[in-house]
Structure formats: C-alpha cells, structure tokens
Amino acid sequence: MKKISHRINENNIIIIATLFLIVLLYGYGSLSFTGFLSMQVFLNLFIDNAYLIIIATGMAFVIITGGIDLSVASFVAFVSIITASLLEHGLHAYLVILLTLLLGIIFGAGQGYLIFRFQLHPWIVTLAGMFLARGLCYLISTESVEITDNTFMFLSDYKLYVMGENYISIGVVLSIIFVAAAIYLSKYTSFGRYVYAVGGNVSSARLMGLPVGKTTIMVYTLSGFSSALGGFVFTVYMQSGYALHLMGMEMDAIAACVIGGILLTGGAGYLIGPVLGVLSMGMIQTIIMFQGTLSSWWTKIVVGFLLFLFILLQRLIVIRRGKKRMHSIADLHTDSASTKQHASIS
C-alpha cells in the first residue's frame, strides 16, 4: 500500500477537501437535527438536485477547456417552457424530449462555433445565448404552464425503490448514468484527453496537432446537450414550464464545479467533482432548512463563502506550482540533487 501522503497531491487535494466538507456537514446535520440521518433525506439530495448534477457535469467539460457557459440556466427554462407548450399542443411526449435534446445540441454547437471560429470571448457569446434563451421563453409564454401529459406525470411519479422504503426518481438515474458517461469520456476517450490538453495549454495542443477547434465546439455542444437533458429532468421534477425558472442557476453550476475541484483556469479537475460540489451545496441547503429559523438567503451567503475559500485554495495551488517551478529552475544551478525527488536520471 502506498503512503497516504503520496496519494494526496495537488490534483486531488480539492476533491479530498470537498469530501471532507461533505462528511463534516453531514455529521453536523446528523448530530444537530433529528431525522437528518434518514436515508430518504440523503436520497432527496439527489432527487432535488439531479438536474444540477447533470448541468454542472456538462459545464465542467467547458471549464476544463478554459471556457465558460452562462446560458445553461436560461436554456433549462427554455426547455421547460417549450416542453410544456408543445405538450399542450398535443405533441407526443417522447418526440418532445427528442426535439429538446436536439435543440440543446444545436444551441451549444452554435455557441461553440462562434467562440472558436471568430475567437469571441466565451463569456460574451454565452451571455448572448443566455439572453436569447430567456427571451425566447418569454416569447412562448410569460405565464407558468402546467404539464398534464400522462407520460410526464408517469415519469414524475415513478419511484425507484432502493433499500426498502427509500426511493429515487428517474432524474437521479439519468444523472448517475450521465456522470458515469462523463467520467468515462474524460478518462478513456481521445476527446476527453484533448479537453484537458486544450485547457492546459492551447498553443501546445495546437502544435501537437490536436484538433483544438473541434474539441472547443464539441465541449459547448456537450454543455448544450447537458442543459437540455438537465432541462428535461427539471421539467419532470417541476411539472411545469416557466420563463422565470432557475434564475441565476448558472452560477450554482459554476460554484459546484469550483467546489468540486474543477480549476477555473482550465486543464485540471475530475468529473466526479461537480457531483460532490452539488452535494455539498445541497447539504448546506438541507441543514438550513432543518435549522428552521435561518432564512434561505443564508444558503447564498454560505455558498458564496465556500466559493471564496475554494477559489483561494485553487489560487494557492497555482501559486505553489509556480514557486516550485521557479525553484526547480533555480536549483538546477546550485543543487541539482534536491530537485530530483521525483526524477532520477540514471
């Protein structure tokens, strides 16, 4: 067995910190509130946040390439309302789902194309995408639209029982499949590795002959798809379409990535991270709910504070890396033995 200290390195320190945070929060909740320890409370974390897990995971790919996607929350609202209104018009449920997923892919690919082809800033392009999606929502309907379609009702009410009385929803199943696929994609496919290479050093990636343009467009397409899928899960969860759904959720997704150890500067992070980020944020929300006297805005403040801490932690890692590099160059001229802790030139 390898030493633990060897296992902890700057690549996984944030994940470990996040895990520690989740355990801490869960422990605190369990000790402070009766009923917190129940299995269903834990599973509800997944049920309530399944859509966010999907979206944050999709966003993670974009962030790893060094980009950002601000359009996700608006697009979820768009999916919810277009689903509701198409169902109202009598379109078949599965056709509607297929259509929205397709729309997500086209929308994301379009954003990716603009960003890569014209070298536009991803913040600006996806900001425009955010406006566009939200605006289209209002065009379809400014009112909340109830969903009464049988298929959707069925999907919504479906309970998959695990461990006796406890259950999870279809959305949770989808989110787990999505995360598993994302992890596989990131680790075992060329595309996944190109994502890291592009985020690590674009010009190097280009010089190594990697398809930088295709990768960039692909990650935004993936993010568009994940927003559509997340939108579907969310629509099933809410049973309604509304233009004002999930205002500002894009920041939650970004925060989940940051807390989950996806470096905002790109090039680093594990795809399991966003899930952990979402879970710790959900845990905070649950604790505040159980606490009862604290208002919901405390969630925002605590999450913001966590965001600050994790950004600081990310920054420290980057600084430390820079220092180490400086040392290794400096040491070359004085004591070359000490720098080669990891490397032994025989």
Binding site: A128, G129, L132, G135
Partner: peptide, 14 residues
Amino acid sequence: RPEMTMVVKAIVVI
C-alpha cells in the same frame, strides 16, 4: 411584446 427586448439584445451583442 417587451419580452422581445432580450432576444434583440442577444442579437445585438453578437
């Protein structure tokens, strides 16, 4: 409809 503002803004930005 005032809702159009956002769509127009999006197009103007791009």
